[in-house]
Each structure stands twice: as C-alpha cells, then as structure tokens.
C-alpha cells in the first residue's frame, strides 16, 4: 500500500536532520546582485520590494524573522500553517534548507518549485531577500522586482465574473492531474491563485504563448466564460 503518511513522516524527519547540519557560513556571503537574477525564478509567483503584494505566493518583504505562514492576508497551505504553529521562522538557515528542496520541509506546500539546488545560488538569493527585511534594517528603496505579469488580454476578459458551480464541474478535467488539495508531485498546484493570475495563465496557454502541449490543448477549447468559471472555483476552494 502506498503509505503517504509514513512517507511524509520520513521526509519531515530528513528535513530536520538537514536543518541541524546546515552550516551557517553562507549567511553573510551571498552576492545581492547575483541574487536578484536568481530571484527571477521566483518572481512568477512572489513579489518583493516597494509595492509588493500577495499573488500566487505571498509577498516576501520583511521575510526575515517572520513566522512561517505569518501573513494574515495570505491563504497558506495546511502544511505551512502547521510549520508556523510548530515554531518555524524564516532566517538564513531555515530558508537555505527550505529553498534546497521545498517539499522536503513542508510536504504539502502548494509552492510548485523544485528548489534551488546550487548552494551559491541559494546564498545569493537569501542575501538578496535579506535586503527587503526590516531586521536587519538595511533596506534600500527598491523598485518592485516582480510586476503584474505582462499580458495583452482584453480587459473585458479579465472583467468576466466566473460561475464557480460551472467551474466546479469543469474542474474535473483539471483534477485528473492537478490535485484538488493543492499538492505538487510533478504537476503544479493550481488552487487558491488570485483569479486574475489564473485567467492570464490559461489564456496564455490558449493563445499558445506558454509552451505545454497538454495545457495548450486543454485551454485551447475553453471559452472565456469557462476560464473565468475555473478561476472563480479554484481561487476560492476551501482547504
């Protein structure tokens, strides 16, 4: 029997071991400019800097010293809520372990990201994120790194109000691959996205601006109303 619970316990235990072994040497050694480049991998979902707000992922201003799942206005996965309640706080050391393999630390995270495997890249990224934190308070006034995704979608499409009941029916076509509970085992999580991000992403597949044959095919026959319905449904799922 596939015993997922036991498996999760194993990976959590493993993460704890990693954590204890993680050498703190990188903490001061990262290159902030190089970290800005590494952050491009994150910026599809996370914003940081002046004007940053929550999107698919939480904004990352003031991250250092923040408890995991610590923003009140972001809907975190249960996995992260548990980690936060269990005392996980973001510092260079914890970020380093998390970023190496996110799902090893929080198995149920919706963060669809395999991790930053290169140690130097991680140190650079952490140094960069550190500049947006109150503590230490060396924060330059920086431009927002991540802006709303570039798109040329008709505002009328974005203004459509989706029917979540129809979205629930249509979601059956998605949940064969994308888990309704938000887990990511090789296929990204699509739950609790801001509706606009969801609509922009599906139209990008529909218009073949994003490359993935399955998604181009599935989105290709969804109408504007159907995309809005799916965005409304997945954007407001109860966990």
């Amino acid at each position: 029997m596939a015993d997922r619970a036991a498996h999760n316990r194993r990976t959590v235990a493993l993460a704890a071991v990693f954590w204890m072994c993680a050498a703190p040497s990188f903490a001061q050694s990262g290159d902030i400019e190089a970290g800005r480049d590494v952050f491009q991998r994150c910026s599809g979902c996370h914003q940081v800097g002046q004007g940053a707000r929550n999107g698919i992922g939480p904004h990352l201003n003031g991250l250092f010293g923040r408890a995991a799942a610590g923003l009140e206005d972001f809907r975190y996965s249960k996995s992260f809520q548990r980690a936060g309640a269990g005392g996980l706080e973001w510092h260079a050391e914890t970020l380093d372990v998390f970023l190496e393999n996110p799902r090893a630390m929080t198995s149920g995270t919706r963060m669809s990201f395999p991790g930053v495997k290169d140690e130097t890249d991680r140190a650079n990224l952490i140094a960069y994120l550190r500049t947006f934190s109150d503590n230490p308070a060396n924060i330059p006034e920086a431009d927002p790194t991540a802006r709303a995704r570039d798109h040329d979608l008709d505002p009328a499409i974005l203004a459509l109000v989706g029917d979540p009941e129809y979205g629930e029916y249509l979601s059956g076509e998605c949940t064969t691959c994308h888990q309704a509970a938000g887990g990511d085992d090789g296929i990204p999580s699509i739950v609790l996205w801001p509706e606009e991000d969801f609509v922009v992403a599906l139209h990008a597949y529909k218009n073949k601006q994003r490359a993935h044959p399955v998604m181009q095919m599935i989105a290709g026959r969804l109408s504007d109303e159907e995309i809005a319905a799916l965005a409304a449904y997945f954007g407001n799922l109860e966990e």
């Binding site: 596939a2 949940t175 064969t176 691959c177 994308h178 888990q179 309704a180 509970a181 887990g183 990511d184 085992d185 090789g186 296929i187 044959p213 399955v214 181009q216 095919m217």
Partner: peptide, 29 residues
C-alpha cells in the same frame, strides 16, 4: 498532440516527471 521524435533529454525527463504527478493526481481523484 503527441511527443515528437528527437526531443531533448530535458523535455523527455520533464514528461516523465509529469507522469509521476499525474499518477498521484488521478489516484487521488
């Protein structure tokens, strides 16, 4: 659609990883 002959190793690896995700997805569904 169908995968193409001569695809890069990277694409083929991503396709395999996707199938792993699908397996978890469909069995949960």
């Amino acid at each position: 659609f169908i995968s193409q002959t001569g695809e890069s190793a990277e694409v083929r690896k991503a396709t395999y990883e996707e199938s792993e995700g699908w397996y978890t997805g469909i069995t949960t569904d």
